[in-house]
């Protein structure tokens, strides 16, 4: 139980689809801006800047997928939940089980399609999310955290 674990491999598929959806959305916005610029005679460099930004954004999002997967880790011990993510911007979070107020499972259409769920661990002040876990695993994790939280000293704020 104490071992460090990774997100399921297929989360990369949802990230990929998500990046593509983002690209399509920004292309639509770009087209709208282009038409608006055409109508009101905005300078053309404005459109170029936005195009480059979109291209750079999409490329970096796509390229970062394997890194994101590789560096996203979590661990549940007897008295804490720990998460670690990021390669360029690294983040390491510790939440003692006794501070956990509730655990929320949620899934958007992409995660539902891949039979995964997002796990949000909330304390009295902050909420920390695990991006996606297999349905069964997510539920097990929730039960595990809640069981440990119930067992822990009654913690009031």
């Amino acid at each position: 139980m104490n071992a460090t674990q990774q997100l399921p491999k297929k989360i990369q598929i949802t990230w990929f689809v998500h990046a593509c959806a983002n690209l399509i959305l920004s292309l639509i916005i770009l087209a709208a801006i282009y038409l608006a610029g055409h109508a009101w005679h905005w300078p053309i460099w404005f459109v170029y800047i936005i195009t480059t930004a979109i291209a750079l954004g999409t490329i970096s999002e796509l390229v970062s997928i394997p890194y994101r997967y590789r560096f996203w880790q979590y661990r549940i011990t007897e008295d804490a939940v720990e998460m670690q993510s990021g390669f360029i911007f690294r983040k390491r979070i510790a939440i003692p089980i006794s501070r956990v107020q509730n655990v929320t499972l949620s899934a958007g259409p992409l995660l539902q399609w891949q039979k995964m769920q997002k796990v949000a661990v909330a304390t009295a002040s902050s909420t920390h999310t695990i991006d996606g876990l297999d349905n069964a695993k997510a539920e097990k994790l929730r039960d595990q955290i809640m069981a440990l939280a119930l067992g822990a000293l009654d913690h009031e704020i």
Binding site: F87, F89, R90, I93, A94, I95
Partner: peptide
């Protein structure tokens, strides 16, 4: 409530 360590590369 929780503790976070942040670091850039």
């Amino acid at each position: 409530q929780s503790l976070v360590c942040r670091q850039t590369i």
